[in-house]
Design a protein around this nucleic acid. Sequence first.
DNA 1: CATAGGATCGCCT
DNA 2: GGCGATCCTATGT
Length: 210
Amino acid sequence: MNFPENNSPPKMLSKEWYLQEDVTIAAKSLLGKVLVTELNGLKTSGIIVETEAYNGIHDKACHAYGGKRTPRTEVMYYRGGVAYVYLCYGIHHLFNIITNKEDIPDAVLIRAIQPVHEVQTLLERRKMIKLKPTLTAGPGVLSSALGIKTELSGITLSPDSGIWVEDHGVSFSEDEIQSGPRVGVSYAAEDALLPWRFSVKGNKWVSPSK
DNA sequence: CATAGGATCGCCT
DNA sequence: GGCGATCCTATGT
């Protein structure tokens, strides 16, 4: 596998980490971080291997484009470090990490994870028998596998709230990161072409390209 | 109040 | 590759 060995103990991302101003840098440095949920007594996790950056009010693909505020998007304006979860196509709960200062609605969509621990629980939630990349390759299916639902939207990422991100000392250099256009945002005119989808090159847990 | 459509997925051909 | 599922959200009357 293409993850370096490391012996550093897991640590939480700091509150300050989420306040960084360049959401594309945040999206890239989230690759290799570990997304953990502990819900109903079940602890599950995976390594983030694919993300997309959404650049606040200037980004036509962003739900907060033009400064739009609605009950759904209000949490995007919170100070960085909260979850933004919304229902897509009536079925899928898509999980985002809000970054940047209060009132600047940047978000990173988590698009794929590599399962590590408690794979059996992930499989059960997905009603799957065999371990395959479709378990967690895609924003809808990874939320399903980790038990993430829209009711978590607006919650602060921390063990107290049942969902958080750990730093296990893994990060990737530019030449280990694949960049490309974001998926499913053709309505966003010229912003649809921005190369703001990021993934770990050659990793089999990344979602299929379109 | 009515309605259109979505940062997707899985099953079907 | 094509399409239906499924329901919340945003928008317009």
